[in-house]
């Protein structure tokens, strides 16, 4: 069966992409499975200059999920191009580069540099909840999303994906702003801002106090948001949030996504990406779908 999907200038052999921030640059998981089995990879969020990230503890376990506050620890865009692209190009794998910055200039500088690099798409991270400046500040309002998307669009020669935060009153407003400002695609959801407390120490578990919630716990919120956004925008949607298997992924596709990203579940089960693609295929066989794109938005209402 053909699981390929083709949207926003991206050609994926299957609709399952490794989600940014959960998969590094692919090296670690390549010891556990053949990365050629992935539909694509969205690499760890990059900034113009290297970042150290937040102090530990950076993770707290919560029911059905985790809070993280890594804080964009990364080697910077230049080291990525020099050291990680050659590694990733050993695989037949579209490379989506997730970028974050403090200022519109940061985003533009990275988009310009990456437009000349051997990559397949740029994912604008305007939704990281774990850094003090920029990023989520832009993503929290339609005006902020418009501003960043529009300036990056001018210099970006690659397909442009805008990754949306769920930490807003109405995600369709930021999605529409991204579309109107030139995004080729939106991906959602980034993590939900959360907090966990150690009641014995009477202190937050995370050194950064708050962090981003991901994992199965967020899935219903994510499906709902993908559904709402699909009603309001015409550009394709990459859905994510708590996907652990093919059935979960099919929910996102039916809600309106053209592809999905899977991340946190891989910490527990490194086979989750391959199994999710297989699960989508099994569902399609069972229900007589010939192409993944037939599933997108095929919700019976």
């Amino acid at each position: 069966m053909n699981l390929s999907v083709n949207f926003a200038g991206l050609k994926l052999k299957n609709p399952v992409i490794a989600a940014s921030g959960t998969f590094g640059f692919g090296r670690e998981f390549s010891n556990f499975f053949d990365l050629n089995r992935l539909g694509g990879i969205s690499v760890k969020g990059l900034t113009l200059e290297p970042r150290k990230g937040n102090p530990p503890p950076r993770i707290a376990e919560t029911p059905g999920g985790i809070l993280n506050s890594v804080g964009l620890q990364n080697p910077g865009v230049h080291a990525f191009i020099r050291e990680e692209i050659p590694f990733l190009r050993q695989f037949d794998l579209p490379i989506i580069v997730n970028i974050a910055g403090n200022t519109p200039e940061d985003y533009c500088a990275m988009a310009e540099i990456l437009s000349e690099a051997d990559i397949d798409a740029i994912e604008l991270n305007v939704s990281c909840p774990n850094v003090k400046k920029g990023c989520l500040l832009f993503g929290s309002t339609p005006e902020g999303v418009s501003e960043i998307t529009a300036v990056v669009r001018k210099v970006c020669k690659k397909p442009l994906i805008v990754k949306l935060t769920p930490n807003v009153t109405d995600i369709t407003q930021t999605a529409k702003a991204a579309e109107a400002s030139g995004a080729d695609c939106v991906s959602l959801i980034n993590t939900l801002l959360g907090m966990a407390i150690d009641i014995e120490k009477r202190k937050p578990i995370l050194a950064n106090t708050m962090g981003g919630l991901s994992g199965p716990a967020v899935k219903p919120v994510a499906v709902r948001m993908v559904y709402q956004v699909s009603k309001e925008v015409k550009i394709p949607i990459i859905g994510m949030g708590g996907i652990s298997n093919g059935e979960d992924a099919v929910e996102f596709l039916l809600a309106g996504a053209s592809a999905v990203m899977v991340g946190t579940a891989g910490f527990v089960n490194p086979g989750v990406w391959v199994e999710t693609a297989e699960g989508i295929e099994a569902y399609m066989k069972k229900h007589g779908f010939g192409k993944v794109s037939e599933l997108t938005g095929a919700l019976q209402e």
Partner: peptide, 12 residues
Amino acid sequence: MGCGIGACLVCA
């Protein structure tokens, strides 16, 4: 720890 293999960067 999160992933235990170096991908998620939480065990700093």
